[in-house]
Amino acid sequence: MTVGDSAATPLSFRRSLSLTTRAWLATLVAVAVMVADARFDWLTPLRDGVSVLVRPLVAAGQWPFRVWEMLERTTIDVVALQKENAELRRQVLTLSAQIWEGAAARRENDRLRALLGFAPMPGTRLLPAQVLYDSPDPFSRRIVIDRGSNHGIQPGLAVAAAKGLVGQVTRVQPLVSEVTLMTHERMRIPVTVARTGMRGILWGRGEGALQLRDVLGEWSVAEGDEVVTSGLDGLFPTGLPVGRVTRVEHGGQVEPLVFVTPFEAGERWRQLLVLVRDETVAP
C-alpha cells in the first residue's frame, strides 16, 4: 500500500470535504435551483415528475379530512338538509331565468356582431375543480386545485367562484394546478368600471385588497361602482365580475387612489370553476 492510495486506504482514515464546505456546496445547489425555477422556469419537467411521485403522499395527508367529510355527510341533520334543498331549488329557478336572459342577449349580440362584420366572440366552458388545499408557502397566495394538464388546464386561465373572479392558473402539473389569487402582489388584471366604461389595471396588494391604477383617459369612478374584467389581455373573458370600488381618495395626487374589494374574498372555497377556452377543452 502506498501513501495516498485512496483505494487501499481504510474507510475511517479517508478525508472528505468538511461539513461546512459541504453545506456551502449544497446551499449553492439550492440557490441555483431557486433561480432556475423562479426566474427561468427551467425545472418544470422535474416539478411535473416529482409531483406525480409526491401525489400519493398528498393523498395520504388528506385522507383524514376526506373521512371526516364523509362522516359529516352521513350524519347530516335532515331538517338542515331540507332547508338547504329548498334554498337550492329557489336558486335554480332564479339562475334558470338569468340563463334564458343571458342566452337571448348572447344570440342578439352574435347577430349584431355578424351584421357589423366582427369576428364571433370566443366561447368559454366551465370546468368544475375541487380545491385541494391552500398553499402553505409563506411567499405566495396560492391554492391548489385537482385539475391539471391531463384535464385540459393551461397556464393563464381564469378561475372563478359563484360571485366572480378568484384568480388565475399560474402553474400546471399533470394532475393538479396552482391558482394565484388576484390579491397577490404580482397579479395585474385589465378591468373596466361597468358604470362608466373606464379601463384600467387592477393591482393586487395582498391581504384581500386591490387597487385600480394605470387608467387610460379620464378618471371616472365612484364608490360603489362595479369592476369587471375588460378581456383586453386575451386571457380573461370579458365582463367577469371582479369587485366593487370601496374607497376613492383624492389626496392631492395626480391620480386618485382607488381601492377595490373583490367579490370573492373569502379564500375558503371548496369548489371553483376554471374558465376554459373552447379550443383547450380536453376531448
Binding site: 459541504r22 453545506a23 456546496l25 449544497a26 446551499t27 445547489v29 439550492a30 440557490v31 441555483a32 435551483v33 431557486m34 432556475a36 425555477d37 423562479a38 425545472l43 422535474l46 416539478r47 416529482v50 409531483s51 411521485l53 409526491v54 403522499l57 398528498v58 398553499s135 402553505p136 408557502d137 411567499f139 405566495s140 396560492r142 391548489v144 402553474r171 396552482e178
Partner: peptide, 26 residues
C-alpha cells in the same frame, strides 16, 4: 443524514406545496 438527502426531501416538499423549488432546502 447528508445534504443530498436533505435536498431531495426538501424539493419533494416544495413540489407538494407549490413553492419555489429549493427554498425549503436552503
Amino acid at each position: 443524514t447528508g445534504f443530498g438527502l436533505t435536498l431531495l426531501v426538501s424539493i419533494a416538499l416544495d413540489v407538494g406545496r407549490g413553492a419555489v423549488l429549493g427554498q425549503t432546502a436552503l
